[in-house]
């Protein structure tokens, strides 16, 4: 057996799974987005009704704007927090043992249930929750804040809570690869800590920042459950538009929205990759 054939056989299971459960479903969604639907069934057709309806409705634009807003704000917050945490782990913690231990503390929640992690905010943010009662007892506010739960605030809080990890891991990874002598050289050259950060560390972390950015933006843009749960169904994003159509059995319309969402996500990734040439950075 030649090497080439062995490699093909070894790669085949992965290729088959991805073809069957990734490529085929996407193709199917694109096809169905041109189909028609009655109240209880869908039928094959080739019509642009779903897209016409989608682009003709002002709701669509509001919801897409909302989705991008969530993505942008979450991105900025996760980047700030994630970078700071990774910096602390990589440069301030000096023994490898502690670095690994603290890093694991940051990653363990990733292996637990997202839904439970969302639910666990409720006793904290609710009208009579911990945050409100603490603030009242400190005399900061007189009446409970209404915008803590079931608002944009709680949605973004949950996103940051769930996804900051996706920034910490790749940025930490980039930082650990930075040659210590580069930082020493900067110091010897008379750079302040701030200058070292801006001109040495951040540029060298670009690949990690990029990977984290792609993860966070795509996860937030594709989300529907966090928005639904944390906003108490009072806010909408594209994912919720899709899942609402699905619950009404309007699969063609859901598919058309899904296609537009996919294209949007791909455009965002394309733009990100243009901003930083990832191949040059690797």
């Amino acid at each position: 057996m030649t090497k080439q054939i062995t490699a093909w056989i070894q790669a085949a299971p992965m290729a088959l799974v991805l073809l069957a459960f990734l490529v085929a479903p996407i193709v199917m969604i694109v096809i169905v987005s041109f189909w028609g639907a009655t109240e209880y069934s869908i039928y094959p057709a080739f019509q642009f009704d779903n897209y016409q309806f989608l682009f003709g409705s002002p709701v669509t634009y509001t919801v897409f704007f909302n989705t991008l807003k969530y993505a942008l704000i979450t991105w900025a917050l996760t980047l700030g927090i994630g970078f700071t945490v990774a910096y602390f782990l990589a440069f301030e913690v000096r023994s490898l043992k502690w670095q690994i231990a603290l890093f694991l503390i940051c990653t363990i929640p990733f292996w637990t249930s997202n839904i439970i992690r969302m639910i666990s905010w409720i006793p904290f943010l609710g009208r009579n929750g911990l945050a409100n009662s603490t603030l009242i007892s400190w005399g900061v506010i007189d009446a409970p804040l209404e915008w803590l739960l079931f608002s944009d605030f709680s949605v973004i809080l949950a996103f940051v809570h769930l996804y900051t990890l996706f920034m910490v891991v790749p940025i930490f990874n980039s930082m650990m690869r930075i040659d210590g002598s580069l930082i020493e050289a900067a110091k010897d050259g008379g750079a302040t800590a701030w200058q070292t950060l801006c001109h040495v560390i951040i540029p060298l972390c670009k690949p990690g920042i990029m990977i984290g950015t792609i993860f966070v933006t795509t996860l937030v843009m594709g989300d529907f459950i966090t928005v639904r749960f944390m906003s108490g169904s009072q806010r909408a994003n594209v994912g919720r538009l899709i899942s609402n159509d699905i619950s009404l059995l309007q699969y063609p319309s859901a598919s058309a929205t899904a296609v537009v969402l996919l294209v949007t996500v791909l455009i965002v990734i394309g733009l990100l990759l243009r901003l930083v040439d990832i191949r040059k950075e690797l």
Binding site: M14, F21, L22, V23, P25, G239
Partner: peptide, 24 residues
């Protein structure tokens, strides 16, 4: 191609996989 497929699998919104597989 396979590498990019695997990466795409990570970034494509999960609900699309769910919807597409359900439809098929």
């Amino acid at each position: 191609v396979l590498f990019y497929l695997a990466i795409a699998s990570l970034v494509i919104p999960s609900i699309l996989v769910s919807l597409g597989v359900g439809l098929i």
